[in-house]
Design a protein around this nucleic acid. Sequence first.
RNA 1: GGGCGGUUAGCUCAGUGGUAGAGCACCGGCUUUACACGCCGGCUGUCACAGGUUCGAAUCCUGUACCGCCCACCA
Length: 856
Amino acid sequence: MTQGVPDKPALEGLEEKWRARWEADGTYRFSRSKPRDAIYAIDTPPPTVSGALHIGHVFSFTHTDVIARFQRMRGREVFYPMGWDDNGLPTERRVQNYYGVRCDPALPYDPSFTPPETPPKPPISVSRPNFIELCARLTAEDEKAFEDLWRYLGLSVDWSLTYATIGRTAQRVSQLSFLRLLDRGLAYQVEAPTLWDVDFRTAVAQAELEDREVAGAYHRVEFSLDSRKIAIETTRPELIPSCVALVAHPDDERYKPLFGQHAITPLFGARVPIRAHPLAEPDRGSGIAMICTFGDITDVTWWRELSLPVRAVIQPNGAFKPVAWGSAEWPSDDPARAQQFYDQLAGLSAQKARARVVELLRETGALVGEPRPITHAVKFYEKGDRPLEIVTSRQWFIKTMDFREALVERGRALKWHPAYMRTRYENWVNGLTGDWCVSRQRFFGVAFPLWYPVKRDGTMDYASPIKPDVSRLPIDPSSDVPPGYTASQRGQSGGFVGDPDVMDTWATSSLTPQIAGGWESDPDLFNRVFPMDLRPQAHDIIRTWLFSTVLRSHLEHDSLPWTNAAISGFVVDPDRKKMSKSKGNVVTPKALLVEHGSDGVRYWAASGRPGMDTTFDPNQMKVGRRLAIKILNASKFALSNAEPRGAVTHRVDRGVLTSLARLVDENTADLEAYDYTRALDRTEKFFWSFCDNYLELVKSRRYGEQGPAAAASANTALHAALSSMLRLFAPYLPFVTEEVWSWWQSGSVHRAEWPSRAVLIAVAGGEDDRGVVALEAASLVLGEIRKKKSEERRPLKTSARLVKVTDTADRVALLEETRADLRAAGLIERLDLAPGDFAVDVELAQAEALSRESSQ
RNA sequence: GGGCGGUUAGCUCAGUGGUAGAGCACCGGCUUUACACGCCGGCUGUCACAGGUUCGAAUCCUGUACCGCCCACCA
C-alpha cells in the first residue's frame, strides 16, 4: 500500500516514522536462508562503552552502513551485528566511583549483594563476580544509550544480533580459544620482566604503549675503577642500586681495555662487570652505559644476552622495595654505607627517589657537573599517567614471533581500502619484539579459565594448571571449583587456587568474528558468515584490533578473518588536529543529528573517503539536509502526474535514461570497491543537473501541451529515473529516500533491488547516445538563455523573442527534435537553428522593467 | 631515525598526461504553479617549492619544505 504524494513534503517527523517502521517490519533482520556467497558479513567495531560516542564514531559507522545498505540492495543477505566493548579498565574505574566499591578477588561471591544508594566511603570490597555484576549493570545503561544513537543515525544493524565483550558468549569464546591455544602450546606462561603500569598495577602489551615527550635530565655519574673514575650518563640515576653491569660497544677503543674488569657503583659500592655489547652506542653520552634491572627494554635485552643477575628495586606498586645490602643478591663493598643511603629511598616512588639520589650523588661528589635538562620520549601505557616500569612477574603470552612471516602474508592477502594502510600493518608486524602478553592483573575482564594446585608448602604449582571441561565455559575460577575438588579446598594446602588474572581486552576483541558468528555454538551460522566480508575500523587500531584478530584467526582457523578491511580516517578540526574529547563534547552527536537531520549528517560523513582524515564541517551537513529537501520536492514533481504512461519515444527522455544507466554502472563499480564518496558525488551532480535541466525541459510536455503520447513518454522516463536515483541515494540518505519510495512503491527501498543498467535501457527502448547529446545540447541552450536574463537583470519568466543557435549539424538535428521542449522551457517565441560554430544568440522580449520604472 | 599519507579558489574538497573544477562563503539578480528549507548568474588560482621526462605536467620521476599519522632499543 502506498501513501500517495503529499501536498507539502517536509523532513519533519519523517525520521521518527521510518525508524519505528523499520523496527516493526524487521527491515534489517538477518535471515540465514541464503548460502555463504549470497551473504555479506560485517565484523562491526564494538565501541567502548565507558566513554561517550563522539562524532568520529558517527563518521566511521556511517561508512559501514552505506556499504551494508548497498550490499543488501545488491541482493546479499547482510549480517550486520553490533557489539559493545564494555570489558576493561575504563569500565572498572567508572564502576568503582559510581557504586563506591573495590574489587577483592579473594572474597567469595555474595548473591544477595546490592550496592548502597550512595557510594560509601571508604569503598566496600566486593568479590570479583559481584564486581562484574555491577560492571554489567552500569554498562547495560550505556549500551541502551548507544543503541538509541545508532538507531537515530539510521544504522541498518540487526539489533537482535548484539554482543558485549564481557557477555557470556564473549567469555566462553575467549576462554575456549585460550584453552585451545594452551593445548597446542601456542599460549604459555612465564615469569619474566614485563612492561608494567605501577598505577594500575598490571602488565601491559607492546600494542598498548605510546611514547610521550617528557622533561628529564642527563646526569653524569662517576663509577670508580681502582683509582680511576668512569663517567656514565643516565636519565634514571635512581636506578643505580639496581645496576648490574656497565656496557660499551665491543669496538670502542676507549673501553676495550676495561672489558672483564669491575667497576664500583657510587653510593652503594656494588662491584659490577664492564661488558661489551653491540647495542651500546659509542656516540651517546660517554659511550658507556649502566645496565639496570630494569630501566628500559634495552636493559632487558642486555640482561638476557649477557646473563646478568636481577636486582629489582621497583615493586609492582611503583615504590622502592626494602633491601638488605651485603647479601649475595645485594653485594656491596661497604654494606653499612650502602644501607644508610638506600634506607632513604625505600618506600619512595621513582620520581622522589631520583631527587634524593641526585642529592646524595652531589653530596658524595659522584655527580659530575649539574644535570642537563632534556626532553625525551618515554614509554607510557596509553591509558596511564606515569611512565611504565619493567617488573618481573608471571604472565600469560600468546605466541606471535613465530608467525610474523605468515602474518605478513595474511596482510597481503587482505584487501585493504585504501591499499596503503597495509603498510602500517606490515610495519607493526615486522617491528614486533616479543610475544603478546595477554594477562592483566585486573578484574573486569575475561578470567583465565584455570586453577593451580596448592602444594604442601603452600606455594602454587603453576606448571600444572587445572583446566575445566569446555562444556562448562565460561567459568570464573574465583568462584567455580575445578573438577575433583570441593569449594572448601580453595586456598588450602593440597587444594587449589584460581588464576587471579584477566585477559587483555584485545584478547577478547580479537575474537569478534567468532563471538558474533556463533563459533562452536552455532555451526550453521558460523559456516554462513565466516570468514566475514568486511572489517571496518579506524587506522589507529590497526596494530591492536586488526592485527590481533588476524593473529587469532590465523592460529585458530588458518585463514583470514575477513576478505576486506575498510579503514576510516579521523574527524579532525580545521587545524588538522584530531578532534579532542572536549571539542567533541561541545557538540554531541545527538545534537548534530537533531539539527541537521540524520540524512544531513550522514551526507557529511560520506564525504570522508576511506582512510582520509576529514574536517568536521557542519556546512556539509547543511548541504546534505538541503539535498534531502530537494529530493522531496523534485520527487513530488516527478510523481505528481502519474498518467498517462506509455513508451519512451522522445530523444531527451531516452537520453536521460541512458546517462543514468551509465551512472548506475559507475556507481556500482565504485561501491564494490568501497569508494562510497565518489559514487555519492556523481549521483548528486547527476541529480542536480536532472532537476535544473531535464525537469525544466519536460515540464510543459508533462502538462499535456504536446499531446498524451508525448506526456506519457516523459512520465515513464521520470518515474524510471526517479526510482533509480532514489535507490542510488538510499544507502546514504535512508530516511528521505524511504519516504519518497513509499509514496508510490510498496516495500522498503532498502530491500529494493539495486538499480540496473539493463532495466533503464529497456525502459528507454534501447541505449541512445544521441539522446545524451540532445539533453546536453538543450541544457546548454537553456543555460545561455538564463545567463542572458541574469545579465540583463530580467525576471526569469521573461520570454525570448528570438533565440539563434548555431552548432554542429548533428547537434542542430538533435535540437530540432527537442524544439518543442526547448521552446516551452526557455519561453522562446522564435527558435532558429542553423549549422555552424557553437553560438547562442538570445534576444529577450521588450523589457517590462523599464515601463514599470517609468510608471512609478 | 625509518615509514605512510597530504599540500589545488577565502573554507571543505574533486580532478593521475591534453584549455584548472564543484560545493560552501561572497557579490548581483529573480516570487519561476516541485522546491524562498528556493531559483539564476557572477567573482575567485604562481595547482607548496626546485629540477627532470614529454610536443604537452596539478597529474609521471628526483629532491626540498611544511602539516598529519604510524613505527623505533634515544642509555
